[in-house]
């Protein structure tokens, strides 16, 4: 564990908490893409499937973190699609998730480190996570704006994988550890946030709201 990965995971936890708080406090999921949250839930379940297969006692933080990620993302989906369904902006959350899931699944079968079920599920989860934020970014471009709290969520969500890139550089240099698939997907994922990062840093930090087109 290194400082980059630690802050990366904390940033990821913060993102999940910010979104949950936003929906719970405002009792509304306006401006939130339910599809992105569904895709994230699928990512966690397929990536941490080993939790369900051979359940090992929750003896370390990693197991606890995995369970937190899975339960929090499923609970967020429950809030969006059931509890606060009336506030779900289905018309603007219109990006076809199948266009993300099918290519990720296909690519996972073609490019992977080992052709076995768990490894392919893990690879699928990595590829899917790289593009899972697209419906959310698409929704913001359709509505033309993002609530400040949603911008903070996106900033934390984007920062988590950006910090993981620093973690991979660190691990390459000090542990000569390389996981090419995770690195390539993580770089793609972070690049997708660049436009948002620019808007966040030039606007939200100064107290303005993000309104598109910028």
């Amino acid at each position: 564990m290194n400082i980059f990965r630690l802050f990366g995971d904390l940033s990821h936890l913060a993102a999940i908490a910010i979104l949950l708080l936003k929906i719970w406090k405002t009792r509304s999921c306006a401006g939130v893409s339910g599809k992105t949250q569904l895709l994230f839930a699928v990512c966690f379940i397929t990536r941490y499937i080993d939790l369900f297969l051979h359940f090992v006692s929750l003896y370390n933080t990693e197991k606890v973190m995995k369970l937190i990620y899975i339960s929090a993302s499923v609970f967020t989906c429950y809030l969006i699609f059931f509890k606060f369904k009336a506030t779900y902006d289905g018309n603007h959350d219109s990006m076809r998730a199948e266009f993300l899931i099918v290519p990720a699944a296909g690519l996972a079968c073609l490019i992977n480190t080992k052709f076995d079920a768990i490894e392919i599920l893990w690879t699928f989860s990595i590829y899917l996570e790289a593009v899972a934020i697209l419906p959310q970014l698409f929704l913001i471009s359709k509505t033309g704006e993002a609530e400040t709290i949603t911008s903070h969520y996106l900033f934390a969500q984007g920062s988590y994988r950006a910090l993981y890139i620093l973690n991979w550089i660190y691990r390459y240099h000090y542990e000569s550890h390389v996981d090419t698939i995770a690195i390539v997907a993580g770089v793609v994922q972070t690049i997708l946030y660049c436009d948002f990062f620019y808007l966040y840093i030039t606007k939200v930090v100064k107290g303005q709201k993000i309104v598109l087109p910028a």
């Binding site: 995971d9 990693e62 995995k66 990620y69 076995d116 893990w122 993981y164 973690n167 995770a182």
Partner: peptide, 10 residues
């Protein structure tokens, strides 16, 4: 079980 290259990150 064979020691598959474990993914040790979240």
């Amino acid at each position: 079980q064979h020691a598959s290259k474990k993914h040790d990150e979240l």
